[in-house]
Structure formats: structure tokens, C-alpha cells
Design a protein around this nucleic acid. Structure first.
Lengths: 138, 138
DNA sequence: CAATAAATGCACTTCCATTGCACTAATTAT
DNA sequence: ATAATTAGTGCAATGGAAGTGCATTTATTG
């Protein structure tokens, strides 16, 4: 049994052929992917399957969903220690308005936000839009 | 000529009856509103009109659009000196997962974000999700 | 008052997210 | 091992919101 299979099982996700492929696909991509991207990569499989695979992955802490402001949900693998649940560990996302790609800047943690009296934070989403390093020509 | 009319003209927006009503509606609401909210408040008017009114308001610095992560665009009046264009002046938004309302925390500016080499920031969106003061019972 | 421009209303389209249901594959119990 | 049960997949369809084209009405300007 290979590594991916073992990992999925550890996350309580049954390692079906499709799930393994999707996982590998996302691991090889460095950027966040949309359902449509996966759909285009696996034309043999149905959109629903891919959709539900992502949801399953999300529920089991394998990927996190990203709202990058484009209106299209993106997904990225959680890094080890991603802990997308715990507020303190949230990283920010960058969306390039030129190439339209979204990346996790995992090393950039979101600073603590002070809220007015009575407000309780459960989740923070921080998206920076601009030009990525690839497109800025550096 | 009343105040609202004058204000709209100052912003280069012709103060039609509908626009004045929408403006007043948004001013009276303390929270960000969705197109659907306005639609429900003005059933006599057409959705397209309301939609385009918001776009017109947005283009002329009267409202700013808010992506609070619900997938539904919200709009809120710009405060005087809102300057939603200038990155430094951006405030954060709070979305209550209980009452589903979104508010501008205009006094809370978004801290400066350090990006990796080569990344250029043009826009920042920071949304905190949690329980608002009304719902937390304070 | 006529000509022009802006605003409005209606119908329609598109796009993505999501669900219901049938079918197949895999797992567990007998 | 085989039947019973559960999980996964595929197809079809729905829903919700954003956006567009065009005809009509209203306002502005010459």
C-alpha cells in the first residue's frame, strides 16, 4: 500500500482509485484548484463524484476550501499542521488578477484581529488580490 | 432639494426617485445589504434596476461591495472618508454566523500585510466570521 | 418642441453549486 | 462464501445569483 493510500486511511477516508488520483493531482499542483480544473483533468469521471470527493476531503481535514473572491470555490491540500479549524493557524491566500491563480501563503499567518466588545471570532478569511511573483516578472 | 439628492449629485449620480429611496434604505440599515434585501423592500421596482443602481453607486464611490464569504454580494454605504480604493484605508467586515448579518467595522483598519518577494498587493479582503454582539447577548 | 441621452422593466442566459435517485462496488455479518 | 448493508459513483435535474440585450419610458438639452 502506497503513501497516499495510507494517508487517506489515516484521515478516515476510504482510498478509492478516484480519490487517490484527485489527491495526487492536487499534490502535484502548487496552487489552489477549482472543481472545474479537476473536472478538466479527469474527463472520464463525473462532476458529482469530484465534487463530493472534495467535500469528503474537506470534512476530513485533507483539503481546505478557499474563497478567493472570484466567486469560484477553490481547494488546496492542507499542509501538515494546517489545522484550518484553529483560528490561530489560519494562513492567508493570494489571488493574482493577472493569471487568475490562487495560492496559499502558508507561512504567512493572519495577525490577531481585535474586535469590538461582544464580538466573537470563529473564523477569519484574508485574501490579498494583486500580481503574483510569476506575473510581476521576478 | 434635500440632502440626499444633493449628495447624489455631488457624486455625479442623477438623483432619481428610485435611487433616493435605495440610498435612504441603505442609510437606515446599519448592516450590509444584499440585492435580494433591496428587492424585497421595493417589490414595485425591477431587480435589474436595483442591480444597476447598486453598480452605479459602486462606480461613484457611494457604496462598496462586500464579499463576506456567503457567496452573496453585499453592499454598504461608504462612510465619509471610506476611500475603498486606497488599500490603506480598507476596513474589515464581520459576518455573524447566527443572524447572518454582515457589518462594516469601519474603525478597524486592516493591518499591513507582508507578502513574499515579487508579490504586489492591489486589494485586501478581510472577513471575520463569528457571533456578533447582538447575538452573543452583550 | 424635437432630439438625444439616461434610466427602467422584461425576458432571457449563463454559471456554478447542490441534490435526488438509480446503479455499482466494497465491506460486514451470517 | 454468500447475503445484507453501506459507501461510492454517474446521470439528470434543480436552484440561486449574476449578468446582458433590447424595447420602453423618463428626463435633459439644443
Amino acid at each position: 500500500m502506497n503513501e497516499v493510500e495510507k494517508f487517506l486511511e489515516d484521515q478516515k477516508v476510504r482510498p478509492t482509485a478516484m480519490r487517490i488520483l484527485i489527491y495526487k493531482y492536487m499534490a502535484q499542483k502548487k496552487i489552489a484548484v477549482a472543481l472545474t480544473d479537476i473536472e478538466n483533468a479527469f474527463t472520464k469521471s463525473d462532476r458529482t463524484t469530484l465534487y463530493r470527493t472534495l467535500k469528503t476531503f474537506e470534512e476530513n481535514g485533507i483539503v481546505h476550501q478557499i474563497d478567493d473572491g472570484t466567486g469560484i470555490s477553490k481547494y488546496a491540500l492542507c499542509e501538515n499542521g494546517c489545522n484550518c479549524e484553529i483560528e490561530q493557524d489560519l494562513h492567508l491566500h493570494f489571488h493574482c488578477s493577472n493569471c487568475n491563480e490562487t495560492v496559499c501563503l502558508t507561512e504567512h499567518k493572519i495577525p490577531h484581529i481585535n474586535l469590538p466588545e461582544g464580538y466573537l471570532a470563529e473564523d477569519v478569511n484574508l485574501v490579498v488580490k494583486g500580481i503574483c511573483e510569476k506575473c510581476s516578472g521576478q
